[in-house]
Amino acid sequence: MTEDNSIRGLWLISLMEEAQAGDIKPAGHHEALLERSSKSKEAHTEDLMRRELREIMQSVDLEEVTSSDIRQRLEEKVGFVVKPYKDFIDREMLVIMGQLDKPSKIFDYLYLGTEWNASNWDELKGNRVGYILNITKEVDNFYPNEFVYKKIWVSDEATTELLIHWQKTFKFIKKAKYDIFHCCIY
């Protein structure tokens, strides 16, 4: 394991992407290699589209293009008709957009971000984050030895009751604000 936290963060993101794609298997190394080599053509096609789609979306101004424009560019890059994969591509575009989103600055001491923001070491350090309030049971604390975390174990659903956690979260944010402005902990 490396001491470079930015590399560790990329490694975690890479593992999450592989897990989403179904590439991580509990089998032994040799069995995993055999299983991977027998992946269906469909899975290889989706992997190719996922990689190319990410590259396209990182190279364009997402405010200036439509999903149709992106699908057309993807088709040009992969060299085959992607219409049968429209639903897959649309889902992947949403995932990639979530990963590309920057956190929203609420106050000088408070940002609102996604799982992808919470796993991006460079972004966290660049924004001088010292405390992370993690309100979901689906997302781990990525750097428990580097940041002060408060974990509220709730489902990430619209019907989840958050108000019952108000006092705990308010105290945590208040302490983070105090430490940032009075103790200079980053």
Rank of each mutant, 00 (worst) to 15 (best):
S68D: 10
N117K: 05
F80K: 11
Y149N: 07
L162P: 05
Q58Y: 06
A158L: 10
I56G: 04
T66I: 03
V81D: 13
N120S: 11
W121M: 14
E161P: 04
M97L: 12
D101G: 03
L110S: 00
F142Y: 11
D69W: 04
I89P: 00
M49T: 02
V82A: 14
D90W: 02
S59Q: 06
R54L: 08
N141V: 07
Y111G: 00
D61V: 01
K150Q: 11
D87Q: 09
V95T: 12
P103L: 11
L48P: 01
R128Q: 13
L53K: 04
K83F: 05
G113N: 05
E52K: 15
T114V: 07
N145A: 08
V95P: 03
S67M: 13
R128T: 04
Y111A: 01
Y149T: 05
I89Y: 02
Y111Q: 05
E161Q: 11
P84F: 01
K86H: 09
K86T: 13
T160I: 05
I135Y: 09
E55K: 15
L62K: 00
V65E: 07
M97E: 14
V60R: 05
Y143L: 02
S67N: 15
M49F: 10
N134W: 01
W153F: 14
V78C: 12
W121Q: 14
L53M: 03
G79V: 02
S155A: 15
V154N: 10
G79A: 06
N141Q: 13
A158V: 05
V65N: 00
N145C: 04
E63I: 05
T160D: 00
I56N: 04
L112H: 07
I70F: 08
Q72F: 11
Q72N: 14
E123M: 13
D61E: 03
K105R: 14
E146T: 04
K102V: 03
Y143R: 00
G113C: 02
R71E: 09
L53W: 00
L62T: 03
I152F: 05
R73S: 11
G113Q: 07
N127H: 12
S68H: 08
M57F: 04
V60Q: 04
D122S: 15
R91Y: 00
I152Y: 05
K137F: 10
S155V: 13
K83L: 09
E138N: 13
L62Y: 06
K86W: 03
K150E: 11
T45Q: 15
V65D: 00
V82G: 13
Y85M: 05
N117D: 13
W153A: 14
R54F: 06
N127C: 00
T159L: 13
R50Y: 04
W116N: 02
T159P: 03
Y149R: 10
V148T: 13
L124F: 07
Q72I: 07
T136G: 11
Q99A: 10
V139P: 04
K151G: 02
Y109R: 07
Y143V: 01
L53F: 01
E64C: 06
